[in-house]
Every structure is written in C-alpha cells, then in structure tokens.
Design a protein around this nucleic acid. Structure first.
Lengths: 255, 255
DNA sequence: AGGATCAAAGGTATCAGATACCTCGGGAGG
DNA sequence: CCTCCCGAGGTATCTGATACCTTTGATCCT
C-alpha cells in the first residue's frame, strides 16, 4: 500500500510546504471564484520572499487549483478532469497496451453513463444528445462518403459531442469530468480507429444508426438497453482500433 | 463542446508558454526517469531568465509531470492518479451529492476491476488479494468488536488494500490509477460509512465474508460472479453512507 | 447631472545578481 | 580496496528593481 495520504510535498522545500498549506485552505475553505491574498501579503504571512510564494502558486496552478492572470490576484478554480489527462496521454503514448486499457475503462464508464442518462436525463439533456446526433447527420448527408475533410472533422466532433452529452446527461459529475479527462487521449485512438472503420466498409450511416439506438433507449428510460447499445457500439470501435493497430504494425507508416 | 484540446495555457505568459512547450517534450520524447537540462541551460534556450524557467518547472511539477529535488535536475515522472484527486476532493467537500456521484462511479469501476481480475489475475495478484484479506482477519480476530482503535484502523487499511489489490490484479493500469485517485476522497466516505455500519449491526466478520466471496469468485475465474459479489458488497457500503449522512443531517455533530 | 477619459494605485510577470545548501563523483589518505 | 573529504554542478531562496496589466476613482467635457 503506497498511498501516501495527502503529502504531495516533493521534498520539504519551503515552496512545497506553502503550496500544501494553501491547498488545504483552498480545498477546505475557499470557494471557486474567490481570490487569494496578494503575493506580498502571503509572503508576509509565511515569512518567505515573494518568489517562494510565486512558486507555490505556480505549483497549485499546475494542479488546476488556481487560475492566474496578470494584474489580478490568483483565483480559486474548480478543478476539473483535465488534471487526469496528462497521465492518460502519457500512458497511451508510452505503453502499447495503454490505449486498450483506456478503451476498456471507457467502455465501462460510458455504459454507466448511458444507464444513468436513461434513468435521470432531463429534457435539456435529451435535447443536447439529439442535437449532437443531428449534427452528425448534417455533416454527412445521405452519401456514404464525406464531402470533404471539413465534413469528416465535423462528423467526428459531433460524434464526440454525442458521447459527451450522454455523460453529462447522466447527472453524475464524476462521469462527466472523467469523460473530459479521457477526451484528448481518446481522440488519438479515435483517429486511428476511423481508418480501420473505413477499411471494414462501415459507413457513417452505420455509426449514426448505432447512436440512434442509444438515444432511443435513453429516451425510453431503458437503462439496461441503453448500456447494451453503448456496449455494442464501443465494442465495434474497439475492434476497429485493434485491426488498425495490427495493420499498422505490419506496414508501419510512421510520420 | 468546450473541449479546448490541449491548450492549458493560462494566459500566454512566458512561463506558461515554456511549460507547455516542455510538456510536449516530456510527454512526447522523454521517458520517465530521464532528467531535464539544467535550469541555466533551459533559460538560455528559451531566452528567458532562470526564474521563468523555474516557474514553468513548478507548473509542470504541479501537474505531476516532473519530480523536483534539491541539488539534482528535475526528473521526468510518470504521471499517476494523484492528479485527479484534487478534483474529487473538492467535489466531495463542496457538492453534497458529490460523494454519491463518486460512489456510483466507484461501483462501476470496481465491478470492472473484479471482472478483469477474475479473467486475468496472475499468481502474484491473487496472493496480494489474499494477503489483504488475511490482514483484515488478523486485525479483528474472532471478536465482533475491535480490540482498540489501532486494530480498527488496521482493519480499514487492509480493507482498502484489498480493493486496491483487486484493481491492480485487473492488469488495467487505468483502473489501478483511477482507484488510486479516488483513494483519499473515498477515505472520507469510508470513515463516515463505518459509523453507519456499526449502527446497522454489521460485524467485521460480515465484511470479511463479503470480501471472501469476491476473492473466491476471482480465484475461480468467474468474472460475472466476481462483479456481482463486488456490487453487493459496495451497495451495502453505499447504503450505510446514505444512512449515516441522513442521520448526521438530523443531529449535526460537527467538530 | 451624466458619461467618457485618464492617471494613480495595487498587482502580477519578469529580470539580474547573489548566497545557501544539496548531490555526486573523483582523488587523497588509510 | 575502502573511506573520507572536497570541489564542481545544481537547485532553493533572497533582495531589489523594472515592465506591464487591471481596477478604480477623480477629473473633465457635454
């Protein structure tokens, strides 16, 4: 068990100590939107130079706890999913298996999102999902091919937006933010998968139909079916990624 | 869709720009364990003062990408789950519903862990789980009550270790690190739940039995049963948390 | 009076130079 | 061959100063 509790302190340096102390204050007492005392003020309180305070503040900004802007005091920021992105990005880029680990977890979380969205989505949530789906339709039209690259990019953006809308409609903030954290790393996976997709003869209409099924189940409030529809859809995606990667391993076309 | 892609840049300050650039370098080319050039060197390359470099480095250290230690160069660090902890902590503390959102996601992830552990756990993974369970047994003995506070703390630590071991045995690094990220915030929940637990007449032996069932299913390789055993166990926990919170709302005993 | 303009105050961002202290490797001494 | 010590390289922090941004309130014009 290597769970070090709370101490993120690198090595007991003054800056780290101040940062830890401020983190407690921020997480415990300050609400997002409030601002910290001025650097000079803090320097006085902790009996260190302004420089040390600045470094502590930068440390916290890196953790996503503070938002800095020139000429104004540091503002407490509501942490969000982006904090986890670095880890996932690093994982996907360094560990060959990493992408599949991520996809596996994503499957689980998106099924959960679908289930909860079916149970709890309100009118606005449903509409957001519908809009995303409509956006996918508008991007591609009736043709099995994309008109141009812009249309294809738009299609993917709406596809992504669909999944995001489902996560948000679940009403579970952790799900929403986890999804956000996975966004960038998954985009790399998405990009790869789309190539495999085309190879297997899937059309954008197939993808749209899969999303439509998910939406229908959510609208009906059938959580179990929604999860299943999501599972089928994502399993397809996963298989495509696998195929694309295998193919890439055979004929490496590195940039 | 507010997914800003990659730009974490606060406001185009020099330090942020350097940090972003270094982040690309770290995530793209440097392996964990390697070290950055010296501050003076970097200051030269980017044509900024050493201070600016220091602030950029602190920013990255806050993101968990670098490990700093006095007298040595900054070392590239493998990001881990701790990056997500701040968000969850903030959520649990500020949003009354946050804890339940977290518990809900945790249920999903731990069921996934159990499933995967049943399918893929190797010998070492199983042993780690067994050890945690044995630790729970040793902490409490045959009595329905704990000998002292230390015994109780030890019991909880092993309980926690059990779940961690299952997550690790899943072989999915994302699951492992997500679990790690949830550790501290969940501990708060754990703490609360334990009070409800006692109220409902659950004994430590009940808890041990629940864990034993999970372990058995994993050992048998029965993923579905393992997930179900995990679900039952965690649902109990969740219910206890709910009860404890309701009770607390009625007679607030704040410190 | 009401609104636009501008200057000062308060802040942050960055620079330069200097000191304290830590780490590591190599060489002197045993 | 091992140990101890020292110097080189590095980071941590301090002081003092400058540049530039934001906010605000006083001033001035209409």
């Amino acid at each position: 068990m290597s769970l070090s509790g709370d101490a993120r302190s690198d090595h007991g340096s003054a800056a780290s100590a101040v940062a830890d102390d401020l983190a407690q204050l921020i997480l415990g007492e300050l609400a997002p939107g409030q601002s910290l005392p001025s650097e000079a003020d803090l320097a006085g309180r902790y009996s260190v130079s302004r420089l040390t305070i600045r470094e502590a503040v930068k440390l916290l900004a890196g953790r996503g706890l503070l938002e800095l802007s020139r000429g104004r005091r540091a503002m407490v920021r509501e942490p969000d999913g982006s904090a986890f992105t670095d880890f996932l990005t690093s994982l996907v880029r360094t560990d060959p298996k990493g992408l599949f680990d991520l996809v596996e977890v994503r499957l689980s979380l998106e099924m959960q999102s679908a289930t909860m969205a079916a149970k709890r989505a309100n009118r606005a949530g449903i509409i957001a999902i519908e809009n995303a789906l409509q956006g996918m339709r508008d991007s591609v039209g009736d043709s099995p091919d994309f008109a141009d690259e812009a249309a294809e990019a738009s299609f993917h953006a709406f596809d992504f937006g669909f999944h995001e809308a489902v996560a948000l409609a679940s009403g579970n903030r952790v799900l929403g933010y986890l999804f956000e954290a996975m966004a960038v790393p998954l985009r790399e996976g998405f990009f790869i998968s789309q190539r495999g997709h085309a190879d297997r003869g899937h059309t954008p209409q197939d993808t749209i139909a899969a999303h439509q099924r998910i939406l229908d189940c959510i609208r009906e409030g059938n959580g179990r079916a929604a999860a299943e529809a999501m599972r089928i859809h994502l399993r397809d995606t996963e298989r495509d990624i696998r195929m694309a990667l295998t193919k890439m391993a055979q004929s490496p076309a590195r940039s």
